[in-house]
Write a protein that binds this DNA or RNA. Structure first.
Lengths: 238, 238
DNA sequence: GGTATTATTATGTAGGCACATAATCTGAAT
DNA sequence: ATTCAGATTATGTGCCTACATAATAATACC
C-alpha cells in the first residue's frame, strides 16, 4: 500500500475513495494531509490536491484550510438531473416529436413567479402555452412566462415553428436556474390538454432562469402520466 | 477588454462566462485557445485551463483535444438535488422528528430491484419498512431492501432506535447511486400508512446504491402530499 | 478518388516552486 | 479565566516547464 506506481490524480482519487468505501476512514474521520498522502503514494502534492478537490466537489470529503480534510460526516445523496430540450428528450426515446402552440399573449405585468423579492417593478411579459407531443400523444405541457424586459426579441420569433423552450435554450443562456419538482393536481384546462381525467395528479417541474438579477423565464411543465426523472450517474460503473 | 488585472481562475471563468451570457459567443461557437485567452488576460495557461475545466464540468462548454473549445450547442438544464438524511431534512424545517419501524424481515432471495442484469444469483436481503414523521404527521414512507451479502451487520442494528436510512448513510458509503423520481398511485397499505385516501398519487423517489457491482440497498420512498424537491443552485447569486 | 500513414496541435496531466488565505493554536496581557 | 494578537499550518492559487493524449489536418500512396 505504498510507493506503488500510482501517479495520476484519478488513481489517487480511487485510492482515497477506496479507503473511504472500505471503512478505513469513516464519516467524520480526519484524513492525512495532502503532503503525507503525496509522500505515501510517491507523487506531487498538486496531484493529491487535484484528487481531493474532485472528492470535495462530489461531497464525499470536506476540506478546510488549516483544519485539514475529513470524510463528510453527513453525506447526502447527490443526484444530478440533466433536463434536455423537450424535443431532444422525446426524439432520443424514439418517438416522433411535434409541438403545438396553444397561446402566446403579451401582458403588461408579470405574475409573482417572475419576480424576485428585490424586484418590485411590474415587468411586461409574454405568456406562452405549448404542448409537446410524442407520437401525437401529450408528453409535456408548458405554461411559460418570458420577461420582455430581458428577452424582447421573443416577440418576433415564430413560436409555432420553434418552441419557446428550444429557442430560449439556444438564444438565452442563463446564469442561474431554480428547479422545483412536485406532484400537483392538474387544473381542468391542463387535464383537457394532457388528455387525462380532470383532477389527475401529475409530475410538475417548475423552473425559473435568470441572468444575474434579471429574470428570463418561468415555466411550469406538467408531465404525462408515467414520466420518470432519472439521475445521471457521474461515476463510471465498472 | 485586455490586459486587465484579472488573474484568478474565477475571474477568468467569469470573463468567459460573461462573454457567453452576453452572446459574444453563442451555443455552438468556437472559443479561442486557452493560450490566446491567457495572453489576452495576461495570465498563465494553467489558470485559463482551471477556469475552462470548471465551465466544462458545469456543461456550459465542451472541450476536445486538438478540436478546441466550443459553447455547448445543446445546453441542458442541470439541476443538482441534495437528498439529506430524512431526519435532518425534517428537523431543518423546524419539525420534530420521529420514525417508526413498521417491519424488518429477512428474506432468502431479493426481488428484481436489487439485481443488476449481470448478477444472476439469489441474494439474501433484509426487507425494512419505516415511516418517518414530522410533528407526528407522516412525511416519508420507506420501503427498503438491504443486501445481506454486502451489509450483513444490519441484522444486529436496532432499527427502532436508528433508522435504516441514517444507519446506512453513516456506515455504508456507496460508489454509485441511481435515483428515479416519479408519481405513483399509492397501494392500499401505503395509503393507510401515509394517512391519505387509497389511490392517491404521491411523489416517489426510488434509489439504489452500490459498492462497485455489489448492491447495498434499494429504497422506494413515498413522500407526503405537498412535498417539493428543490434544486441546490451551485452558482452564487449576486 | 479514396485510404492509410504521418505530422500537427489544442487540451490534459504531472511535477515543482512560491506565496496567499483561513483556521487553528499559543501565549501574553488584562 | 478571558480576550486579543500573533505564530503556525493545511489547503488554495498562480505560474512555469515538460510531456502525454486525442483529434484533426496534411500527405503519400495505391
Amino acid at each position: 500500500m505504498s510507493t506503488g506506481v500510482r501517479n495520476s490524480w484519478q488513481d489517487v482519487r480511487k485510492y482515497v475513495r477506496g479507503q473511504i468505501l472500505n471503512l478505513t476512514y469513516r464519516p467524520g474521520d480526519k484524513l492525512p494531509r495532502d503532503e503525507d498522502i503525496a509522500r505515501e503514494l510517491n507523487c506531487a502534492r498538486s496531484t493529491v490536491h487535484r484528487a481531493m478537490r474532485s472528492l470535495a466537489e462530489d461531497g464525499i470529503i470536506e476540506r478546510r484550510r488549516k483544519a485539514g480534510t475529513k470524510v463528510n460526516p453527513d453525506p447526502v445523496t447527490r443526484a444530478t438531473l440533466d433536463i434536455p430540450i423537450t424535443r431532444i428528450e422525446i426524439e432520443s426515446r424514439g418517438y416522433t416529436y411535434r409541438h403545438q402552440l396553444i397561446e402566446s399573449r403579451v401582458l403588461k405585468a408579470a405574475p409573482a413567479h417572475l419576480v424576485r423579492p428585490s424586484t418590485t417593478d411590474a415587468i411586461p411579459v409574454c405568456h406562452i402555452r405549448t404542448l409537446h407531443l410524442a407520437d401525437e400523444r401529450p408528453f409535456v405541457f408548458e405554461d411559460r412566462w418570458v420577461s420582455l424586459q430581458t428577452v424582447p426579441e421573443i416577440r418576433d420569433v415564430d413560436l409555432a415553428e420553434i418552441s419557446a423552450n428550444e429557442w430560449l435554450v439556444h438564444n438565452r443562456p442563463y446564469s442561474n436556474c431554480d428547479v422545483e419538482i412536485f406532484v400537483d393536481r392538474t387544473t381542468d384546462t391542463e387535464a383537457r390538454i394532457m388528455e387525462v381525467l380532470s383532477g389527475t395528479s401529475l409530475l410538475v417541474l417548475e423552473r425559473t432562469t435568470w441572468i444575474d438579477a434579471a429574470p428570463i423565464t418561468h415555466v411550469r411543465a406538467v408531465h404525462a402520466k408515467g414520466y420518470r426523472l432519472i439521475s445521471t450517474d457521474r461515476q463510471a460503473r465498472p
